[in-house]
């Protein structure tokens, strides 16, 4: 496989404020959501809104704690993973190609069907990992998609029509 030779974007920002803010925002959404849940008095104990509010409050506290940590300069190092270089700057191109492969079914699976979607998604991900053998990858992806569709359909798993366009 030839190495990816595109420009690499910078490493994770040293102060990711947005993480603390996102957790805080999620907590506030959950607290707001709890207020819109009707508390039933027919139920002895606690109503359905209590857990939602408690989780929201917890997230708010954690969001604030994360912001405090970020302000104090606590580092957020990427995790060590097999086949991944945690210290390497991330490749935006590879990330976008793999994300496209994962997100593609949102746009295509209903009208292209599972086998074709799987084939294209497969090729996009192999491309993200540095493969440039597009036709070969498409063929491998198609074989995998078709094989999976037939095998899982036989096992009783509904993966939709084979090719919805020509149904």
């Amino acid at each position: 496989m030839p190495p990816i030779d595109e420009a690499r974007v910078g490493a994770a920002p040293p102060r990711p404020w947005w993480i603390g803010l996102a957790v805080l925002a999620m907590g506030l959404v959950w607290i707001y959501g709890a207020t819109s849940i009707q508390s039933t008095t027919a139920f002895v104990g606690m109503g359905p809104e209590v857990m939602v509010a408690a989780v929201g409050a917890g997230l708010v506290v954690l969001g604030v704690l994360l912001l405090v940590q970020i302000r104090q300069g606590v580092t957020f190092r990427p995790q060590e993973e097999e086949n991944a270089d945690a210290d390497a700057p991330p490749s935006r191109r590879a990330f976008l190609f793999s994300l496209a492969g994962v997100a593609l079914p949102l746009a295509t699976i209903r009208w292209l069907g599972f086998p074709l979607t799987a084939a294209i998604g497969f090729t996009l991900v192999t491309h993200a990992f540095g493969s440039h053998r597009t036709l070969f990858d498409l063929a491998v992806g198609a074989a995998l998609g078709v094989g999976a569709w037939f095998m899982f359909s036989k096992l009783g798993i509904d993966l939709g029509p084979f090719l919805p366009l020509i149904r």
Binding site: M1, P3, I4, P78, Q79, E81, E82, N83, A84, D85, A86, A88, P90, S91, R92, A94, F95, F97, S98, L99, V102, V125, A128, F129, G130
Partner: peptide, 9 residues
């Protein structure tokens, strides 16, 4: 997504 973006090669 993670391994693709930081593929150790």
């Amino acid at each position: 997504l993670y391994v693709a973006s930081r593929n150790a090669q």
